[in-house]
């Protein structure tokens, strides 16, 4: 049997650092990797390549290989700017094809409990972008969590005085879902936030 100081043991420890991976999953992944050396080489190379090439865009702070990123340099609407918490949120909105403006990634949300202060987020950078005067509307797309909502409120207080329109993503019943299967709390909020047709 292999000892935990062995290379196999080290692999297990590294795998367990990944989110959602526990003891059992780590073991399963490690044994799977052992069985397919060719895939392992490709995986190892891609991991190293990712860390050497992917970085944050100096304009919007989304992940990119070229700085500034494709969205920042692309042909987009300069007048609307969508503010999100994480790079994966940009991917989610891009998938929707509903937004043609540019983005700004905060890289987190305000959270006094975890010691996250405004200065740790990309808020100063956001304000500098807004000062250039091209943006007419900021769409706040932070999460609908306690932290995301507080961040939205914090940004609203900063941005509104600049005379820029601030909007928030709508929330409520998921599209395509049957009302009867939506949980009561969501339905309650959707009823309270109903809109005129």
């Amino acid at each position: 049997m292999l000892h935990f100081s062995s290379s196999f043991g080290r692999l297990l420890l590294e795998l367990k650092k990944l989110p959602g991976v526990g003891e059992k999953t780590a073991l399963r992944l490690a044994f799977h990797l052992l069985k397919s050396p060719a895939n392992v080489r490709a995986l190892a190379e891609s991991l190293l390549e990712v860390v050497s090439r992917v970085r944050f865009c100096s304009t919007c702070f989304c992940i990119t290989e070229d700085d500034p990123c494709a969205i920042c340099t692309g042909d987009r609407d300069d007048a609307t700017l969508c503010v999100v918490e994480e790079p994966q949120d940009v991917l989610a909105i891009e998938r929707s094809q509903a937004f043609r403006g540019r983005y700004h990634v905060l890289q987190g949300a305000l959270s006094p409990l975890s010691g996250i202060t405004p200065s740790q987020l990309r808020i100063d950078e956001l304000m500098r972008r807004l000062e250039q005067g091209t943006v007419g509307e900021v769409v706040i797309a932070t999460n609908f969590s306690v932290e995301g909502e507080a961040t939205a409120l914090y940004l609203t207080r900063l941005i509104k005085p600049l005379g820029i329109r601030v909007t928030r993503l709508a929330h409520g019943i998921p599209i395509g879902s049957d009302l009867e299967y939506v949980d009561a709390a969501t339905v309650q909020r959707a009823v309270l936030g109903r809109s005129e047709l």
Binding site: L110, P112, L113, G115, T117, V146, E147, A150, Y154, R157
Partner: peptide, 18 residues
């Protein structure tokens, strides 16, 4: 909880928001 953490930390920047 967030607001209490903030009051303990003495940080002012986001207090109004919370």
């Amino acid at each position: 909880k967030h607001r209490n953490a903030l009051l303990r930390s003495g940080e002012d920047g986001q207090l109004e928001t919370w």
